[in-house]
């Protein structure tokens, strides 16, 4: 018996591979994204996130493996699928020859919408991304955050079933990021399925119901932000900085053996993973160690990533 359309995953991948010559960018990943979900790819640069997004966006054919988008084959039905996707690329490719509003109305025409319908949606979307007052201006003078909001508005012009956002807030200042997150959160509340890539842990924690951690073209972990932290980290993390840390952190790590569940020496600090940070700090002092600074914080996805790959996410 076939499943109802509504129950079908919007994205379904099995053993998905993308190679460029000898280089394997995506190395056999499995995915399922359900309607209404906010799904994230978390990973450092070069992990294979963007290549995966381009395959999902039907602009790049998979080298091998199975991929179904909205229940269709991205190679054969590419144009039909793209008609129901909204894409916000990593680098802005807005049209500098057109006004802010024309960027949306022109884009609407590529989806076969009438001019009148394009104008109606453009005005509505400019309102939504708070750019109505710039409608007749050029794109170039807009700030980075405004451009990104306009790109997101452009991605919404065909009322897509699935919105793909490739590093939506990379390069934006904190204020612009928060405004963008707030708009994306609203989209999510309206029931739009969001798929995004990011190398910011806070972004993934804010926006994603579920995410996969990618490294070297492979998925190394999958789950909700909370469950990933629970499975791969402890509730709290103690960050210790020692005055002679740069050379001695490995030595300090040895002295800290047994404090908390795990100890990770980094170049600039030593991380102690413990469910109770304060008692771990007490134990550090009891052992006669005197760090220059002590910070007890909640565990984040950064810690998950560090644990899984041995590297930090953003260098």
């Amino acid at each position: 018996m076939s499943r109802r359309v509504a129950d079908q995953p919007l994205i379904f991948a099995r053993g998905l591979v993308k190679r460029f010559g000898d280089f394997t960018a995506v190395d056999g990943i499995d995915l399922e994204v359900a309607p209404g979900e906010a799904f994230g790819f978390l990973g450092p640069n070069g992990a294979g996130k963007s290549s995966t997004m381009r395959m999902i966006g039907c602009v790049s054919a998979p080298t091998s493996g199975e991929l179904r988008i909205l229940g269709m084959d991205p190679v054969r039905d590419g144009a039909t699928i793209r008609g129901r996707l909204g894409v916000c690329p990593q680098l802005d490719n807005l049209d500098p020859d057109l006004t802010v509003r024309e960027n949306l109305t022109t884009y609407a025409r590529y989806f076969g919408l009438s001019r009148a319908e394009g104008r109606r949606r453009a005005d509505e979307l400019l309102e939504f991304v708070q750019l109505s007052d710039r409608a007749n201006g050029k794109v170039e003078p807009l700030s980075g955050g405004m451009k990104r909001r306009l790109t997101i508005a452009r991605a919404m012009v065909n009322e897509p079933d699935l919105v793909l956002l490739d590093e939506p807030t990379t390069g934006l200042d904190p204020q612009a990021r928060h405004l963008l997150w707030e708009r994306l959160f609203r989209l999510k509340q309206r029931g739009t399925t969001l798929v995004l890539t990011t190398h910011y842990m806070d972004e993934a924690e804010q926006l994603c119901d579920r995410l996969v951690v990618m490294d070297g073209g492979k998925i190394v972990a999958e789950g909700s932000p909370r469950s990933l932290i629970q499975s791969y980290s402890t509730a709290e993390v103690v960050e210790l900085r020692f005055p002679d840390g740069l050379d001695g952190n490995a030595g300090y790590a040895a002295k800290l053996d047994g404090v908390g569940e795990r100890v990770d020496p980094l170049p600039d600090r030593v991380l102690v993973y413990a469910d109770d940070g304060d008692s771990a700090v007490a134990e550090v002092h009891r052992r006669g160690l005197t760090p220059a600074s002590v910070l007890v914080r909640r565990s984040t996805l950064e810690d998950v990533f560090l644990h899984l790959t041995g590297r930090t996410l953003v260098d």
Partner: peptide, 14 residues
């Protein structure tokens, strides 16, 4: 430089 066609090819246009 303008990447105009990249934006266009993300839509149903071939």
């Amino acid at each position: 430089y303008m990447k105009t066609f990249e934006a266009v090819l993300a839509t149903p246009v071939r």
